[in-house]
Design a protein around this nucleic acid. Sequence first.
DNA 1: GTGATGATTGTTATC
DNA 2: GATAACAATCATCAC
Length: 177
Amino acid sequence: MKGGKGKGALRKETRSALKPVEDRKMGKRKATLKDDKKKVTKDKKAKKDPNKPKRPPSAFFVFLEEFRKTFKKENPNVKAVSAVGKAGGEKWKSLSAAEKAPYEAKAAKRKAEYGKLMNAYNNKQTESSDDEDEEEKEEEKEKEKKSKPEVHDEDAEDSGQGEEEEEDDEDEEDEDD
DNA sequence: GTGATGATTGTTATC
DNA sequence: GATAACAATCATCAC
């Protein structure tokens, strides 16, 4: 829909040209296109909020999650993510619209959730624009939590805190085929 | 020990 | 409108 294709092709070519697939395995990561981008990326990341909701996976990524499992089963020796990505990409292209439908439905759901999260996030941003201190405190809290993984998670979850529930699980199997 | 990199496509965000 | 960035994955290397 958007202009993602052009970019995709461009990046594909650029990467392929700059980074032979054989090399990456050796971990020959050095000055590459990404290296250049990295500066920008890092810069962006620097001002990126850790609280900002992560972008939802596209239909392809939803598919990829499953595909990875299958791929691992069939190729237990192949652990290179690039191999999975390549294979997944090819497979994805070979899928029919009907086969892609369930993945797209899932992606749409995640996107809707993302929209809500972003809404809440934006609201929070507006609110906390003058009390960024609190955000920092929260960050520190998170850090502390991580430092102390021995917290009674069960307790917290029992209290209804960690009730993620993943309700999208309920109809993820709706293979309306 | 930590972070970066490799591939893939799609979507979002930014300019 | 066009393009850059990022989303997941994980073995492996560099620092």
